[in-house]
Structures are given as C-alpha cells and as structure tokens.
Amino acid sequence: MVGKRLLVTPRFGLARVLSKRGLCSRTEAQRLIRAGLVRLDGRVIDDPEFPVRDMHTARIDIENSRAVAATSRYLMLNKPRGLVTTTRDEQGRDTVYRCFEGAQLGWIAPVGRLDKASEGLLLFTNAPAWAAQITDPANGPDKTYHVQVDAIPDAPVLAAMQAGVVEGGEFLRAKSVLLLRAGEKHAWLEIVLDEGRNRQIRRLLTALNLNVLRLVRVAIGPLALGDLPKGQWRELSVQEVAVLGGDD
C-alpha cells in the first residue's frame, strides 16, 4: 500500500508575514515586533522570526489594530532630479516620497532605485514578491535609459560599452547602446541594461572617459515613461502589472 504524501504548508517568520501583507517593510516590522507592539492570535510576540503557521488566516494585531492584508498597489513615478530614493534620509535631503504628499497610499516601497542625480521611471509597490521579480538580476525586465554625455562617442567607444570594462573589481557592460543624436559637443545615447549594479551607467561611461550630464530612465521592460509629467505619478493598469511580473 502506497502511503499518502503529506502536504506541508510553508511557515514564514512574523516580520516577513507583515511585509508580505503589504503593511510595512520587513525592517519596520522587525522594529514593531521587538518593541512588543505585535500580537499573534492574541499573544504578544517579540521575535521577528517567530513562525506563523498560516500567513493567510493568522490573526495579527499591531498596536491593538487588526493587521489585515492591504490592497496591492502598483505605481509609477517620473522621478525628478535631486530627490533621494529612500524612505528617510539621515542628511535631511528631500526624498521621492515628497511626490506622494497628500495621497492616502499606505505603505509603499520603491522597486529598485535611481540615484539623486538621475531622473525618470521609478516603480513603487507594497507587494514584495512582485517587486522581487522586477529587480531579479537574472530574470527581471531590461531597463532603458536616455543618457546625455559631454562628448561625441565614436563607434569603437560604443562597441566598448557593450563589450564591457572592469571597474572597481566589477565587470560592467550595456546590453545595447544606440547613438540617438549628437550636437557639436554633446550626444544623447540610448542604453539598455539587463542587470542592475550600483551606478552602473555612470561608472561604465566614466571608465571610457565620458561624463554623464543627464540620465533618464525611460522604460522598464515594455512599460514606458511616456508623457507622465515630471514629479507626477499614476497607478499601473492590471495589464501593466501582469506584463511586468504578474500580480503578487
């Protein structure tokens, strides 16, 4: 007689469950739990890794309020130059959350980041699994940038961007590079990346003696920035969410 295979429901730590419910970041969840502000099935839990038997049915309360799963949100922002991609900045600089002032969105987190001097398409969500698909270095969608540089790169330099260079102990390359237009001293390039390393484009171009004047992300996979005004945001459609990574 063949025995029946038992189905084991995976257990997640309490902090991860709060994050997966779209209520806060895992770091914030850990802080709340350690502060004794979270109850699981009526019991105060102070261990962020305390296993939750069923993340969907467990009763969780934060500061005496029921922690029900938040409605999944998926947003795109046209990030202006000069804003930091972080929730809080220790130096007191303006962050991307300034663009959402007055909106009742609950907790949302950036999907990846753009540095302070960069502009363009930046995604936000409260669905961690969806965000992980977008930022996955192996399987995430390509990112497309329009980059203004302080010279007119010739064909060998464009080829070198795709061949790659070693900078700071890392191999940096672009998936594709296209010269969009050129003036007397400056040029605009379209650069596509299929991986995401810290300040990758700036470091790659600096290694090839090109300085970046402007850097604008114009697309993530098939999702284009389009004519969304600078500093403005909008919700993604169901179709856009699905084509980028599916619903969480």
Results as ranks from 00 to 15, higher is better:
V2L: 14
L6C: 05
L7Q: 13
L7P: 00
R16P: 05
K20S: 11
C24F: 04
R31H: 11
L32A: 09
L32H: 06
R34F: 04
G42T: 07
V44R: 09
P48Q: 06
P51N: 05
M55G: 05
A58R: 11
I60A: 11
I62H: 05
E63L: 15
A67M: 08
A69I: 03
L77N: 00
N78Y: 02
K79T: 04
P80S: 03
T86Y: 14
T95Q: 13
C99D: 06
E101S: 15
Q104P: 00
L105M: 10
L105R: 12
G106R: 11
G106S: 07
G112T: 02
K116A: 14
E119A: 10
L123S: 07
A127R: 13
W130Y: 07
Q133T: 14
K143R: 15
T144M: 09
Y145S: 07
Q148P: 01
Q148Y: 07
V149A: 13
A160V: 03
V166C: 08
G168K: 12
E170F: 11
R173T: 01
R173K: 08
R173L: 00
S176P: 03
E184F: 10
K185G: 01
V192H: 02
R197V: 02
L204Q: 06
A207L: 04
L208G: 12
L210V: 06
L215T: 04
P222C: 03
W233T: 04
S237G: 11
S237W: 00
V241Q: 00
G246T: 04
G246E: 03
